[in-house]
Structures are given as structure tokens and as C-alpha cells.
Design a protein around this nucleic acid. Structure first.
Lengths: 107, 107
DNA sequence: TCAATCAATAGCCAGCGGGTTATCGATCCC
DNA sequence: GGGATCGATAACCCGCTGGCTATTGATTGA
């Protein structure tokens, strides 16, 4: 069920897409045009990537006239942080177990 | 240059591979055979994934007789943690800027 | 109204990546 | 030594994805 990890990792795995997300994090709300201008790919490619990011919940879009503004949704990174915490946490708990074991051996 | 992010995200994007890494985090050092037994893919597939994980620095291998033991290298997750910190950090700084702005407007 | 701009969609193609089976090298044990 | 096991490699196939161009739909402004 924690498909969330899947979606996040897969979405952020592409460098172009990740670069777009990073820009939105750094620079805040930005239009597709502005993003395309400094991207190394075509406008349709940018649109497609933004669509993927949106479906992953990583960005929001806001329509204003004929242009679309995108912004990062940092809350969507939570599962990623949870995952890394869990991984390092497993290590921590195994470390605790080891300490526990050593303590019991000491008696 | 921060290729590290690229490698990590791409490596962890595959669910099978991530599952292997998670098992190594949870259960500590494990042989290829044991990993294969509970994996949904063939032994060569497991070997290939472990190779990718190793090249990403996420696991280490230790040869003992004819079997190979793999273990997670959690330090390799550092760039991932840094990245998320940076992303949320950008937000934080923009938030600070906003507070700053409001403060100045208040005067 | 009509031309121009912005962004999304359609449709296509090439490359990559993850899966398989078959095989090989090395090690263990009888 | 010889058969069996373990894990890596080889060789291959197929589907997905990320890129492109062309087009459409919507909005703006002359």
C-alpha cells in the first residue's frame, strides 16, 4: 500500500523533472513559459513533466488567463522523509539491540 | 556535478531494487540466496539489482566461500537527506523572507 | 474579428532498463 | 576427481518512458 514511495521515487528519478521541481522550490510560483525558457527541452516536454509532478502531488497549478502558474507542494515530500527515517531507524533499532545484547552479556 | 542525487533517485526508483535495500536495512547482512528466496524475481535479476545498488554505494558485498553477503550502507543516503533538507530549506528561507517583508511593512 | 501567444494533447519514435533462460567459474563435499 | 550448489555474466526480448513535431483550444489584444 505505501505506493507513495513508489510514485515519489519514480517521479523524482528523472533529472529534467527533478530540475523543474527544484526550480519551483527555489523560485516559487512560475509559469510554464518561464520554466520552458530555461529548460533544455521543448515546451510539450515541460508540460508533460509538470503533469507527472502534479499527479504525484508535488506541484499545484493555477490558471490565470492563458498562462498556467505552477508551485511546489513540499508536503508531498513527507513520505520520502518518512522512508529515509525508517531506513536509518531500522539501523538505529538494530544498534539498540546490539547495545542491549552487550549489556545482557555483561551481566 | 551533484550526480549523487541522480544515482540515488534512479537506483531507488525501482520497487524490486528498493525492496531489496529495505530488507537489507531491516534484517542486516544477508546472502544472495536468502534474498532470492523471498524475492519475486529470478536469481540473476536479484544479482543485477544488487550490482546496481553496490555501484550506487548503497550496499557492500562480502564474499565468504561460494556465497556473497550483502549489507546496507546507510551513509549513502546522506545526499538524499541533504536534498530534501535543501528543498524544504528553500521554502523555509522564502518563509523567512515573507516574515521579514511583513515586519518591514509593519513599521 | 482575426492574428498571435500560451499551454496541453496527439501521435510517433528510439533507447533504456528490467525481466527471462542459459551458461560459466568458483567453491564445497562425498 | 566429480557432482552439486552459489552467484555472476551473457544474450536476448519487450514494454515503458522521455524526447520530438504538429496540432488544438483558449485567451489576449490590435
Amino acid at each position: 500500500m505505501p505506493k507513495a514511495h513508489d510514485v515519489l521515487f519514480r517521479t523524482l528519478a528523472d533529472p529534467t523533472r527533478r530540475a523543474l521541481f527544484e526550480r519551483l522550490c527555489r523560485e516559487g510560483e512560475t509559469t510554464v513559459g518561464a520554466l520552458t525558457a530555461r529548460a533544455r527541452v521543448s515546451q510539450p516536454a515541460v508540460s508533460k513533466h509538470l503533469g507527472v509532478l502534479r499527479q504525484a502531488g508535488l506541484v499545484r497549478d493555477r490558471h490565470e488567463g492563458r498562462q498556467t502558474h505552477y508551485s511546489a507542494q513540499l508536503g508531498a515530500l513527507a513520505p520520502l522523509i518518512d522512508w529515509t527515517s525508517q531506513m536509518t531507524g531500522f539501523w538505529q533499532s538494530r544498534f539498540d539491540d546490539l547495545e542491549d545484547l552487550l549489556k545482557r552479556m555483561d551481566q
